[in-house]
Design a protein around this nucleic acid. Sequence first.
DNA 1: CTGTAGGGTTAGGGTTCG
DNA 2: TCGAACCCTAACCCTACA
Lengths: 163, 163
Amino acid sequence: MGAPKQKWTPDEEAALKAGVHKYGPGKWRTILKDPEFSKVLSSRSNVDLKDKWRNMSVIANGWGSREKARLALKRMNQARKQDESSLAVITEAKSDEKMAEARLATTSIGSPQIGGSKRSIIRLDNLIMEAISNLKESGGSNKASIATYIEVLIFLLSLMSKR
Amino acid sequence: MGAPKQKWTPDEEAALKAGVHKYGPGKWRTILKDPEFSKVLSSRSNVDLKDKWRNMSVIANGWGSREKARLALKRMNQARKQDESSLAVITEAKSDEKMAEARLATTSIGSPQIGGSKRSIIRLDNLIMEAISNLKESGGSNKASIATYIEVLIFLLSLMSKR
DNA sequence: CTGTAGGGTTAGGGTTCG
DNA sequence: TCGAACCCTAACCCTACA
């Protein structure tokens, strides 16, 4: 078997997107011949480009990225199992928001058995929730704001681990 | 639920082996269509054949790659219980798989030398970078996915605060 | 012959159930 | 808990047709 299944790299995906932006979809051979992309996509055929674009389009149209995120969260929750969660409050809240907005079928997100939580943690929760709500209000499509909130989370993390 | 879990009979396994011998592995649909096997395997799909062949192969060539991968995952989940090292294992595993394709300009995010926390935060960065990378892949303009990834971060936070 | 569209199939990671 | 059976879907293949 010659091709053990070659997954697309971010570089290749970027090149494909750029190519479609430049020539439009359906011009696969043209994109491949463009020196700007031919290096990165040298191991891909025009048909490969077409197929990949089809996959990416599915993801872009709503359902894809959400599903991916859902699976990630699901794995995380599963790993947690029956740990007494010190962030019970916040997981409850998040569950509410998610259900309302995303309509997730997997009810497993809940499991908010409240263990012994601590004051500092509760306050942390408020901060985080505020960050999330701000993100949602502001349209949430801006990478800078995403990075900012992630940095906030990192800072909070550092505080907690310092203890 | 949907699949009552139908165990493979010796007849079916024999038919599968014969089919692979006749057409080679990877020709699952072809095997199914062959009148010689279609009767015995009438309740199996081409995907079923593939999965069964994989299971048989794992046993045949003594501990194939699939089993290894599964154990690695398992170890990752168990390590979580041992505090401290838990985040390390998780993020390392993810790092191995996905870091290669992450390629995020390390720009402003790397500011976490706060306090003596060092290690755990650095490793968390990998996870965060992965999250951002995923966000970018999916177009980055989807509020739900942003919120979800932040929730993942929160989950990590909860792990660390457990201690 | 060359290239694209679109349905079909496979490979492999992941999940579930007995 | 463990592994066989099953699911999901990106990646790849096949065919019609322009």
